[in-house]
């Protein structure tokens, strides 16, 4: 495991927050995923070792919680809310628009490697439906037109970043 020094520091910091080491499993999974982009088997075993539990105990978590992934995704993660309040306000159209903009299917890495578009369940912002989370940031009232704008912005940022 090749974790950044900062990640290792945070790992050391979080474990003593709990009287039982195993409790730090979710925090460690978050930290390792932020560092590595996804959770590999190596990561599972590393975390298990660190917390003195069995790898199966970590594997059970990785596969239960949808936020953990076992494969890399696109550089940006677009999560469109699928649940009722967003759906009745057009969430499915929003999602279709993102897919069209990046020529990608749900849960895939877009051909340019830029994004992964996913449906997620209620993001607790139903009053401003439809909502979308791009990486850590919530975007409200994202109709198809707004989805196009956001897509353009992502594409623009990708160009600048690549230059």
């Amino acid at each position: 495991m090749n974790l950044q020094a900062e990640t290792l520091r945070k790992i050391d910091e979080v474990i003593p927050h709990y009287p039982v080491k195993r409790s730090a499993a979710l925090p460690l999974l978050h930290l390792v995923q932020e560092d590595q982009g996804f959770i590999s088997n190596e990561a599972i075993e590393w975390i298990a070792d660190r917390l003195e539990i069995q790898p199966i105990n970590v594997y059970e978590l990785v596969t239960f919680y949808p936020m953990f992934r076992q494969k890399p995704i696109g550089r940006r993660h677009i999560k469109v809310c699928r649940t009722l309040s967003c759906a009745i306000m057009g969430g499915y159209r929003t999602c279709a628009e993102f897919q069209k903009q990046f020529g990608t299917g749900l849960g895939e890495v877009s051909p340019d490697g830029e994004v992964t578009v996913e449906f997620v369940e209620c993001l607790a912002s139903c009053g401003t439906a439809p909502v979308v989370m791009i990486d850590d940031h919530l975007h409200e009232k994202v109709d198809a037109a707004r989805a196009r704008e956001l897509s353009d912005k992502i594409k623009g940022e990708a160009k600048t970043a690549n230059r």
């Binding site: 088997n41 539990i53 069995q54 790898p55 199966i56 105990n57 594997y59 059970e60 596969t63 239960f64």
Partner: peptide
């Protein structure tokens, strides 16, 4: 402790940790 469930809901599956 080598057995566990992966995935969730009705798709939960009994597994032995890979390897």
């Amino acid at each position: 402790d080598v057995l566990g469930f992966v995935d969730r809901g009705s798709y939960s599956t009994l597994t032995c940790y890979p390897g």
